[in-house]
Design a protein around this nucleic acid. Structure first.
Lengths: 176, 176
DNA sequence: ACCTGAACACCGTTCAAGT
DNA sequence: ACCTGAACACCGTTCAAGT
């Protein structure tokens, strides 16, 4: 069968889930499809856009939610559900690639104008915290890091969401 | 003069500031020092630890501060002050490398126990937001992205810090 | 139109051999 | 002890040539 963009994206995602982002090369994707690396460039402009396409597929797992904390937890769930999901989405978002905005399901929960700052703040926290925790969790899995517990990190994440929601005053005396 | 670890770290940082993280290769560092790439490995175990050493140097610019929002602004200032500073520090922190904790100057501002969650939450937000903004600012500089304004991003950052400090209630009606 | 084969210009890391 | 030279096992991307 002929090579298609969809087949390439799916093959790339398969390699990502199985071997991780560091081992996801254009040559490996081509190999798994039984073609030469150069052939990919007839269907995909470059590696970055291919990765952005995978990021879009990952973010498609996002569910509808009723509250901001629920949305934060769901975004974290989706990112942790895919190998190197946080790193992929962080990079894609930072470069302005990808078409799926992770704050999408939360848009309806805040007023259009001032709610924007709230959504961006939540997004940066969720991506920052989850990138940190997922990287560490994966290092523990390879035996390159010890003393990190994802359950504890989940607990800290929920505290972070509480702080964003109610302010630091819930944990410490209000600051100037 | 003989090659030293310090000379290698300084040369690497020089290349980072001038050409960026993507162009910072062991071979380039070696070239700039007039040695072969393999020679570096007698003084530095690998590239990651070399990068961690640069991250430590960058975080050494952190000032003493009196409040949490002031510390957040200072960390952002330091990261934006070095090319790819945010990416470098995010990666180094996630992998548990580097010896300088960016929350250091803020430790004295919060109580020992519950203050920890507050610090980590602030750290993840500052790193997440600044990584995002610095990447976009640098893409604008190369002409690969338009419609991003760092002044606006700074403003959004300050709003984010306000939300962390006082809760989302200052921007929108309190959420469940 | 679509793909191969081969090349260009690189990587991080290792290691025998020299000094 | 410290460095060179050369290798190993790769990269992303381009492009003439074939079908």
């Amino acid at each position: 069968m002929a090579l298609t963009k969809t087949a390439i994206v799916e093959a790339a995602q398969g390699i990502l889930e199985e071997y991780g982002l560091a081992d996801l090369s254009m040559r490996r994707v081509a190999d798994s499809l039984g073609v030469q690396a150069g052939a990919l460039y007839y269907h995909v402009p470059n590696k970055q856009t291919l990765l952005a396409e995978i990021a879009d597929r990952i973010l498609a797992d996002l569910r509808e939610v009723a509250t901001l904390p629920e949305w934060a937890a769901d975004l974290r769930r989706v990112l942790l559900g895919h190998r190197d999901g946080a790193e992929l989405v962080v990079t894609t978002r930072a470069m302005g690639l990808g078409t799926v905005d992770p704050t999408g399901p939360a848009r309806a929960l805040v007023p259009a104008g001032p709610g924007d700052h709230v959504l961006r703040t939540f997004e940066h926290f969720v991506l920052g915290a989850t990138l940190h925790d997922q990287t560490r969790a994966q290092l523990v899995g390879i035996g390159l890091l010890a003393g990190f517990d994802l359950e504890e990190a989940d607990e800290a994440f929920r505290s972070g969401v509480d702080i964003l929601t109610r302010g630091v005053g819930i944990f410490i005396a209000p600051v100037a």
